[in-house]
Design a protein around this nucleic acid. Sequence first.
DNA 1: ACATTAAGTGATT
DNA 2: AATCACTTAATGT
Length: 215
Amino acid sequence: MEDSIFQLVKQHFPQLVEKQLQEEIAKIGKIYFFKADETIMDFGQYIKLVPLLIKGSIRVMRENEEGKEILLYFLKPGESCSMSFSCCLTYKQSIIRTVAEEDTTLIGIPIQYMDQWMGRFPSWKNFVMMSYDKRMLELVNVVESIAFHQMDQRLWDYLQKKSIATQSLLLNTTHQEIANDLNASREAISRLLKQLEKMGKIKLKRNQIRLSDNE
DNA sequence: ACATTAAGTGATT
DNA sequence: AATCACTTAATGT
C-alpha cells in the first residue's frame, strides 16, 4: 500500500522531488475512492484533508443564497485543491462544494502536515504556490467569462473544459445539468447547443453530446 | 402500451 | 436571456 502510493506520487506529481517528501506522503497519505456524483466536500464542512488527485476529475462549485450552484472549475489528476490549502491555514469551513465528476481516486493528506512540509520541502512549497497561481488565473477567467462573455462562448468553453477534464469527446450530460452549471435556463442551453450542432462543432443525442475532433 | 423524462418551440417580458 | 406553456421524442417498465 505504502509502496503503491509512493509510485502514484512519483507518477502524477513528479514536481515533488524530495525523496523524503515522497516517502512521507506514502506513509501518511491514504487513498480514497469516490464514485461518480459522490460529494467529496460540502459547504460548511471543515477540511481535514488535502487531496492529491490521481484519477478521474472533480467539479468545484459555489452556491449562492438561493441555493443556485455555479461551476467554478474542474480538478484533474496531478492537481490539488487550492481552496483546501487556504482553508487549512485558517481552519475555516469550506465555502465550496466538490463532487466527483466521474469515478475518482485521490490521496488524502491530513492538513496538520501542510505547515511543516512547507518549511521542510521546497518542492512542496512550490507546488502549493503554483497551485494557487494556477487557480487564481482560472478564477479570473471565470469572472471574466461570467461578466463579459455571452452565453454561447461560455457554453463552448464549458464543453471544452468538460471534455478535457473527462478526457473524452463524448459528454454524458443533459441540457438541464449544463444549464445548472452555467446558471442559465435549460431552453437557452438547448437553443445554443443546437446552433453549435448546426455549425458542426458538436453532435447531439439524448443525454449525450459528442464534440467534433477538429477544433 | 403507457409513463416518465429529456429536449424542442413559440410567445411574452 | 428568463420564464411559461406546451409539444415532441426517446426510453424505461
